[in-house]
Amino acid sequence: MKSETLSQNLDQEAIEVFIDSLAHFYRQIGVDEAQIGVPYLLDSNKTIISDFTGIIGVSGKRKGCVYYTCPKAMLSYILLAMGEKEVSSSYLCDLVGEIANTIAGNARKAFGSDFMISVPVVVQGKPERIQLPESTRSVVIPAKWKFYESIIVVALE
């Protein structure tokens, strides 16, 4: 177990940065903060995907991906709360992209050159492009905002 500690710390640090970024995003757009739920593990052959998903690729010291996925209703709610009149798909995609970008930007800032963080890709519906590392379980962090549950999934090798 002791040998796991190092990478475990790294993971914990990384995941905390992701969680903080999400919290930061909610603060920034001036809505209530999301409640972070109890993180759990997900088998590598399973994915949980909601309506809109922002995917960030990670390479360098750790490889894999991080994605943020949430229901359409929640995004519409946030957009309307922000004063937008229009809630078309492209606006919803933009918003997920922004959230993912906030997460990615903070991650790049926090980890420097140890991690290479890609520009987020936004997918509506069931994505074909999510490639999770095969041998690792993902860590799922549920976040509850109002009535909606969104999740961050961290899958790093």
Partner: peptide, 11 residues
């Protein structure tokens, strides 16, 4: 809080 479980989940 929910986030406090993170180290446990990783362990």
């Amino acid at each position: 809080k929910g986030g406090d479980f993170l180290p446990l989940t990783l362990s």
